[in-house]
Design a protein around this nucleic acid. Structure first.
Lengths: 198, 198, 198, 198
DNA sequence: ATGTAATCGAGACGGTACGTCAGGTCTTACC
DNA sequence: GGTAAGACCTGACGTACCGTCTCGATTACAT
């Protein structure tokens, strides 16, 4: 439990676990609109002040609660570039397939947007690590000669994550096998548009 | 002025214009957090009840206010597929470059998400028309033989819009010339991943 | 219903009656310690903000609630000085015999004390009128020749009210027939200590 | 330091002095409203639990703090009844002239009133001893023949203390030389109203 | 002189009430 | 007859203290 959004990330309340899972629970049962500090406190059997002592707002609390369940695993060397790319895409899909996470994410992003520092912390918790882990896999693919040396790994990730998020939240179409396979193939096809400075 | 989110989309309050532009004004000046019905009513010089008579919540009001400034123009036949694709991409970028729109969109989406019917209206106002207009241009490109006949136009749009939204809201990198050009080229390259297997 | 302590003594909430009697009710049933704005609001079936719109604090509210039941009647000309004095003493005794009033008064005084302006309003509501009415009766006694012309009416009232309050709140002895009679006689005896030296 | 209101009046915390004077200090600087256990603990440089170990509430603490500064001295035989009465009156006036004491007393009385046992302890600490010491002086005056044998000493004291308290807390007029002199004379005048059963 | 217990400071904890604010409903008075 | 103004009830906000509690650190005594 990292508590990247707590006011004192070093320390941690005794009841951090109870509180974070109560937050996720309220979120799942009642939705973001009903995610109030009072409801979380009641659900966790905790005083409001205990929550306020450690988190400055429900956004910070929610960020820690979601970070807890957000996957950004390393991708092991499978000796197979296609398989590794699929793992990368699946990880993103898994995250957004998660009801709790996907439902709350846009609201969270919306409330952090006006504050650049918080937005940076948000990226630290939800983007950087996962992105770096996927970049490692992409670079392995390059070294194997399966992907072009000048592949724009940032653009690849923006396309992958963007398509997944957009489908999930805006369009509402399912994140299925077909989507995953196409996103993988898009990179294996290695169109020139995905490479830099040639 | 369509008022797709008004309780009675057929009729329209005398002061609809005043109210919607007051809403955008408050949004621009004070941000989504301070966008309260009371503030909009005050700014518009209108009673709260007048707003409530026509919109059931501030989300509905905001949806109409944003729909007003959201671009989903038809793309004219320019005789040049690349140029038309670039128009399509630019339109999306323009929309999300707009501060008012981009800042409020995730919050709006977040609050509509739990209600499928509202979400459908949201798609009607912000996605369908623009998507169809772009699809027309893509089909023109197919007929010209510039794009593969079995191009997956939905996937193309998901990738385009997804990348733009994701960069703008999550990553924070600018929506520049380079991004636009690459998104266009990605489709012109016509990798197999963007075609349907029939 | 005067509402001398309301923020806008001219106007008056529709629910003023309900609120004031709820305040007295809570005070009587639960005591001053449990007299919270929330409890009064609940008892009156009213929102907290309705109370706060009209009274700035529970002290102000309580002051109006008590003023409602505080007696400061005119004393009619009975043609009998002794009888009139007895009326005056009885009025004071009645006020402090009232459980609701006597229990809450010291707490009220304590919280107004640090604020001279509020204290002045307090005196206006609870002392001046009653004092003036009694002074009128004393002056009638003087004109009849039953009381010395240079009677110090202020000191008389301080002695009367002081003895009653002190017995009631500090000593705890009952406010009985004997006390009333002695206080009346003390003035009829007309010792020199109760007259001004001119 | 007697600690009549401590939970264990026999023992005494090492830091009793620090705590009581911190309580008076906070009372004097910030007023009764801001007299919180936390503020006293902070001012005294003491843990909250140390206070709670010895006093059950801020009222008990305050009672001990005030008892510390409350005067109820014996009145020496001066051979002069008038002088002794004046001493008695002056002692009462001195107590209520004290800002700390006078400001806090009604609040203290108010919170003890509902509890008869506490009220009895309150009287023990603030009334009985002083009253008895004054009664001794009154009886000396009787033996000297300066005061009537059947003087109602209780009523005298109620009138004295009542007038002083009432003037100080309710009316707000100063406790001056003139008041003291009149209260003394009132008893020396020996009106029949101040004597019993004749 | 040192180990052992009591006592202390600090402050986290589950709570209650505060006073504020906006939501959404309803009434009143004006135009 | 529609509308502005705004009173009203509701419910969450974030804060301040409550009284209880654990936790070392610091005594101070008993060995």
């Amino acid at each position: 439990m990292a508590l990247a959004f707590s006011s004192d990330p070093a320390a941690a309340p005794r009841s951090a676990g109870k509180i974070l899972s109560a937050a996720r629970d309220v979120l799942a049962r009642l939705g973001y609109g009903a995610l109030t500090i009072e409801a979380v406190a009641a659900e966790a059997g905790v005083g409001k002040s205990t929550i306020y002592r450690w988190w400055t707002s429900k956004e910070m609390l929610l960020a820690d609660a979601l970070a807890d369940i957000f996957r950004s695993d390393e991708i092991p060397d499978l000796g197979d570039t296609r398989a590794e790319l699929r793992r990368a895409v699946d990880m993103t899909i898994d995250n957004y397939a998660n009801e709790e996470f996907a439902a709350a994410l846009p609201a969270l992003a919306a409330s952090l947007l006006p504050n650049p520092q918080l937005m940076e912390r948000f990226r630290g918790a939800f983007l950087h690590r996962k992105r770096e882990n996927i970049a490692v896999a992409l670079r392995r693919g390059i070294q194997r000669g399966d992907l072009p040396a000048n592949l724009d790994t940032d653009l690849v990730q923006d396309l992958w994550a963007g398509a997944v998020v957009y489908r999930r939240l805006m369009i509402g179409t399912p994140l299925d096998e077909d989507l995953a396979e196409r996103l993988v193939r898009l990179v294996l096809d290695a169109p020139a548009a995905l490479t830099t400075d040639d």
